[in-house]
């Protein structure tokens, strides 16, 4: 009788352990799934955010390059330069006697130039940082050993 009772008690404890372990595992699984979902969503948001930062940076860079190229083109085709080039090719300024005027009724005039809308290039007014600010502890120690200057 006594042995039977003991066996019953051991069985009960084992079931309790199983139940609590199962319950813990279930909550752990739920937490893991939720955590995984949170991480997945966060990772996706972070990826998008990184893309936004990258694209903004590229956008600014491209606009700067566009402005540089535009300015360079305008300088290359400046009136003074074109005049010198034309003269070097043997052209001269026209005088009224060189020109015959013919009135063409169908063609009134060339299209009028419409000034383009302003661009949206923006530039940070904050001062840039010297690349040496990105120095790590290892870099600093290396510098210290090499140059004998305390970091």
């Amino acid at each position: 009788m006594k042995k039977k009772h003991l066996h019953k008690s051991e069985n009960k404890s084992w079931r309790g352990i199983l139940r609590s372990t199962g319950s813990t595992m279930l909550w752990t699984m739920i937490l893991l799934v939720l955590g995984g979902m949170y991480l997945a969503v966060s990772a996706k948001a972070a990826k998008v955010g990184r893309t936004v930062i990258d694209l903004e940076s590229k956008h600014t860079k491209l606009q700067l390059e566009y402005d540089e190229l535009n300015a360079a083109y305008a300088v290359l085709t400046s009136p003074d330069r074109m005049r010198i080039l034309a003269q070097s090719m043997g052209y001269r300024d026209a005088v009224p006697a060189d020109v015959d005027y013919i009135k063409i009724e169908e063609i009134d005039s060339l299209g009028e130039f419409i000034v383009p809308a302003p661009g949206s290039l923006r530039q940070s007014a904050n001062p840039g940082l010297s690349p040496a600010y990105s120095e790590t502890l290892v870099d600093a120690l290396q510098r210290w050993f090499e140059a004998g200057i305390a970091p």
């Binding site: 402005d67 535009n70 305008a74 290039l121 904050n126």
Partner: peptide, 26 residues
């Protein structure tokens, strides 16, 4: 730096009456 940042817009361009660029930015 890295938090509040002042952004300067680009200065407007100036053209002649036919569209030749007279003032721009680099």
């Amino acid at each position: 730096v890295g938090a509040l940042e002042k952004l300067l817009p680009s200065r407007g361009q100036i053209f002649d009456r036919d569209g030749s660029l007279l003032a721009t930015n680099a």
